[in-house]
Amino acid sequence: MSTTSIPAGTKWWAGGRSPFNASYGKIMMWYFLMSDAFTFGAFLISYGTIRFSVNHWADPNQVFNAFPFAGHANLPLAFVSLMTFILIFSSVTMVLAVHEGHKMNRKGVEKYMIFTILGGLAFLGCQAWEWTHMITGDHTVLVDGVLKTMGTTVTGNPWGVYADPSAVTTALQNTPDANLASIVHSFNHNAHTADMSRSEMISSIQTAIQNSSLHITTPGPIAFGGYFFGITGFHGFHVFSGVVINIIMYLKTRLGHFDQRGHYEMIEKAGLYWHFVDLVWVFVFLCFYLV
């Protein structure tokens, strides 16, 4: 491309009229979001392809059934519903901020930007809790003829099918004492396993299996952890950068930059990004938690 004879300071996009009747910045934000949609779409389709290619996949109602301060209560879909409504509500406060911007109402924009930022931080807090709960969870799994406790990580997870009861009985005899102690702790946090003999721990585990307070599974598909943490992490990083962008927009609003400029279009552009984050969550919610 020729780079000759371009006068310094040429305003390429300020000459005539935009063929799309929108400013350069807004159009480019849309095209960025479209490319981001392809990135997320590629991740989710890759996840779907691998999920379709195996005979057993993790059951979301089994994986995501916990709620903060609810202990071992079985509450499928509850926590992720809370996260979804937090994000929908912060999307509403964002669009209300854009609306106040159209009316050139600085106080209104400030108020709704604060609500939007708080919603984003609440979502990130929920995700931090969920990740911690999944990584540090201790579920009993039958691996290589012995039992051990396992959380959900990128290298393994406990979300396979239920283990064969006779294989579990054999495995219990071969399981080292340290593993037995952590299994007893997983269903009885107050157990003093240091004072328990090996046979006491085994009989405690057998009782827990019989009264359904302990379910022993085989390891789940390894790809589950990578896809779950990869995709929700990539989405969470978008939420985080959205919160940072919104904080910058709030500060610029407070400093009166948009009043000086004569319009609040920057709030609209930040809003496009924020709504996109909500839009992606709608699909992540579908692919990981609902179906």
Partner: peptide
């Protein structure tokens, strides 16, 4: 200042609803 001096490349502006009912 009016939001309508956003940029002179914009030929016409969509009507922004005055209320928040639609939202």
């Amino acid at each position: 200042s009016s939001p309508h001096d956003l940029s002179n490349e914009i030929t016409f502006h969509p009507e922004h609803a005055s209320g928040t009912g639609r939202i």
